[in-house]
């Protein structure tokens, strides 16, 4: 009974959120993940929290919302960045969880350019 509080079981939501966060920082179009200011997008686990990624594990599928700050790139639409994010998320999720990931919502909360806040 007491083991419930210090369970060695990994929470799939927080594990997936951390893996996705690790993969997304490698995307050139993504400056950083950002929880956003209104209704924070984050995944919460025991003693930790991943900002900018909300993973909800449902019985038949996994629902993911990603919120990020985009890098300004005039040659690419923000929607193509969003599609790239979706590919990364579903790629990572397939390795970790045997459930379809749908939908993957992408929120672009801000934009940053080189040498400018």
């Amino acid at each position: 009974m007491a083991a419930e509080h210090s369970s060695p079981m990994i929470d799939p939501a927080i594990a997936l959120a951390k893996a996705i966060a690790g993969a997304l920082v490698l995307l050139p179009g993504c400056v950083r993940l950002d929880a956003g200011q209104f209704s924070p997008i984050a995944t919460y686990g025991p003693g930790e929290r991943v900002d900018g990624i909300a993973v909800t594990v449902l019985p038949d599928r996994v629902q993911v919302t990603v919120a990020l700050v985009a890098r300004y790139d005039p040659s690419r639409s923000l929607f193509s960045l969003a599609d790239e994010v979706r590919e990364v998320v579903s790629g990572v999720a397939q390795l970790l969880i045997p459930l379809p990931v749908r939908p993957i919502d992408v929120v672009i909360t801000d934009l940053e350019a080189e040498g400018q806040g």
Partner: peptide, 18 residues
């Protein structure tokens, strides 16, 4: 079909500024 993409208004304003 794969999900929603949301672009904040701040992003539009920043694009205009840049």
């Amino acid at each position: 079909e794969n999900g929603r993409t949301t672009i904040a208004d701040t992003v539009v304003a920043k694009i205009a500024a840049i």
